[in-house]
Design a protein around this nucleic acid. Structure first.
Lengths: 150, 150
DNA sequence: CTACAAGTTCAAGTGAGCTTGAAGTCAAGG
DNA sequence: CCTTGACTTCAAGCTCACTTGAACTTGTAG
């Protein structure tokens, strides 16, 4: 087990494309040392950092938000479990919110779409707060949302 | 209450921007009649159609998928509640799946990130089903998955 | 030494889901 | 008549999260 990993090794282990890793570096989510050749070399803790990034993305955080979180980690030493858990404080609540919305949407399947009350200004599905929460353009996938192509 | 609504009225009632409504029309999700002036006029059932679109988007369907679903509605008459509920058959299960994933992610917050097992190749968050190919931008696979060749 | 794989940078492209801007039309009010 | 405002089309722009391609360098196996 070498102390430093190449971009190819990190990509292979993490499943994150090399181009994505360079992109993350550009955005300040990860850093790399360089070999004499100019090639990137990653310390092992970077793997966990990447795991955190992927995890946070599943929760719907943008890369910018993730970068902000990661910036809270100590720059001078490898993060401890306490460091990591501090970052995810408050995420539970966020997840609960989304679960609650899904429950509401599910109820709406039978109660609203089925029953005929699916009118925009009266249906409880049409929650202004929820819709307002979605700022900006782009695909509005939230936690775990994927096309129902299966 | 007029029989036909202008794009501004529909936008106001639905909370969906006029530009988005035109965009939906371009993509075949909604249709409009035209006044002599060339201005769009929407029959009232279009409001429900739009509600359905917004709803489906919250569930993570793409506009293309939503268009496919909407195409199943009878073209010759206003959809009944039975027509609508037919479309959403099977969505409950999808929602349950997503809720389950969220519960797992939430558990991972304390069990995985906190405890130190957030290692790329062993963490139970790394569920193959969940990280099944998601096309387009964003994280396509989770740790251990091989990139889809091609 | 030659191949060739794997790495580098930088610029441009992709796709979803819109928004914005330009340029023009149309109806109503003063 | 003039203005205002709501509408029209069409093209281009924007965000996010990357990917792809071009042109080039480095590392390694035979």
């Amino acid at each position: 087990m070498p102390a430093l990993l190449t971009i190819g090794e990190v990509s292979g282990r993490s499943g994150v494309a090399a181009s994505a890793l360079r992109f993350y570096e550009e955005r300040g989510l990860i850093t790399s040392e360089r070999a004499g050749s100019g090639h990137r070399r990653y310390p092992r803790p970077t793997l966990r950092r990447i795991a955190f990034i992927v995890f946070a993305q599943r929760l719907g955080l943008t890369l910018e938000e993730i970068a902000t979180e990661l910036a809270k980690l100590p720059p001078d030493r490898a993060p401890t479990r306490r460091d990591w858990s501090r970052l995810s404080r408050g995420w539970s609540e966020r997840i609960d919110h989304r679960i609650a919305e899904l429950e509401r949407l599910k109820a709406g399947l039978t109660e609203c779409i089925g029953c005929g009350c699916l009118s925009l200004d009266r249906c409880k599905l049409s929650n202004p707060d929820d819709r307002a929460a979605r700022l900006g353009p782009g695909p509005r996938y939230w936690i775990g949302d994927r096309p129902l192509s299966g």
